[in-house]
Design a protein around this nucleic acid. Structure first.
Lengths: 235, 235
DNA sequence: TATTGAAGGATTGTTGAACAATCTCTACGG
DNA sequence: CCGTAGAGATTGTTCAACAATCCTTCAATA
């Protein structure tokens, strides 16, 4: 605990301001539903009845609708006028678009590696290590988590909160997509060494090659996901 | 109006679905407030009282709060728990971050020029022409509008709805920032020929040079805006 | 003078109920 | 089999009330 100048105390305290703003009921309800959707408890396409959920969670319809709105903005739910809200059903087209957007943003962020901070570099390395360790222990869900962390760290190279937020939204949506892959280890396993390769290239400052590798990584993942969707029973 | 296969009728119709979902009261209220904020009628930092605005617009507090939420999501308003919503006060730091994000996304989209559709190409050319014509007529607000159109079209090269949305949000925020520049012609004038140069380079397929020019364009605009903020009375 | 503490008034957070608008489903008739 | 009409269920919107929180004021203290 280093004692700094009073100025620094204040500025660092000011940074905690957002955390201080305690969450509203709607945000807590949204958090519950978000978890349920991302865990797959609430199947895509399911309609969320205001009365049923409001009754179960003991919150008023107004508050519940506020929570719905938050999740709709995150693209986890879709809202149809006078029909209600539904758990989003991702399509192969969504997958294509998600990867199109990710290629642009994450590859752009990767290029900022030379200008990024040490903590940003470390976050990327940490994520790769976690990914490898979880894979060694056959803990595939954790590999998935480390994967998300890796890409969040990749976006973090840009050093821009707005880029972080944009990528965060894409990744949340992607988590919904991943559910069609189930818990199949094959899906997670292939990408672990790929991530190692990318960070090795970055640490050697071979930016062009790193970007090329990341693009191939995206191409492969997109292809695998689109294939999985094509194999899906068309409802 | 070309007659296409029935499939195309349907898919294009499906695209209109969101428009069909007639606007809710909250969205109309949001539109009114959005205009007011962007026109500068509602000064940055101003607190928007639920009672006052709800009373003036004759809508219930619940509906108004929903409108607030929409605008908060667009980053035009900020919400503080138990304190209310305020018109966003952009900072020089915001400007820096906005341009950081724009450089990554728009430059990434620019690189997709060879793969973009003809309509995407045309949208970019149209925006440049509009910009020039408005400048020739000394209509600087219209130059500003054409500018936004230009950058929306630049993002459109990616052919990704999610990229469009991300850039749309950045530009909406930027419009708030532009207000500190007032109606000063100097701010709009310098960038008109720059845009012409970029599209000329693109049409000659000189991608590297086009990207370099766009980056310089961003650097200049960011510098000018940050300077303007530094000159601002610190409240 | 500057700081602290305690009313109080004002504003937001949340709820429940009510009614209108819209959709869904079923049954009927052609 | 198809289309239609009506009943029932669900959402859209508003209102009124109370709880929780914040801001202002003002007096007391060092």
């Amino acid at each position: 605990m280093t004692t700094a100048r009073p100025d620094d105390w204040l500025t660092s305290l000011a940074g905690d301001r957002p955390d201080l703003g305690r969450s509203s009921t709607a945000e807590r309800v949204a958090e519950v539903l978000r978890t349920r959707v991302l865990e797959g408890d609430l199947a895509p396409g399911l309609r969320l009845s205001e009365e049923a959920i409001g009754g179960a969670l003991r919150v008023s319809r107004n508050t519940l609708r506020e929570a719905f709105r938050l999740l709709t903005h995150e693209r986890l739910l879709v809202h149809e006028y006078s029909r209600g809200v539904f758990v989003r059903v991702p399509t192969a087209q969504d997958v294509t678009d998600l990867y199109r957007a990710r290629r642009i943003i994450e590859c752009g962020a990767l290029r900022r590696w030379p200008h990024a901070s040490n903590v940003a570099h470390a976050a990327l390395a940490d994520a790769v290590r976690e990914s490898e360790e979880a894979a060694a222990r056959d803990q595939w869900p954790q590999v998935g988590t480390a994967n998300l962390k890796f890409h969040r760290a990749m976006a973090g190279l840009a050093g821009s909160p707005r880029v972080d937020e944009a990528v965060g939204r894409l990744l949340a949506e992607l988590r919904l997509v991943f559910h069609v892959m189930g818990e199949h280890r094959e899906f997670y396993e292939a990408y672990v060494p790929w991530r190692r390769q990318i960070i090795d290239l970055l640490e050697r400052n071979e930016l062009d090659e790193a970007e090329r590798t990341l693009r191939e990584y995206f191409d492969a993942a997109e292809r695998q996901l689109v294939d999985a969707f094509a194999r899906l029973p068309t409802t």
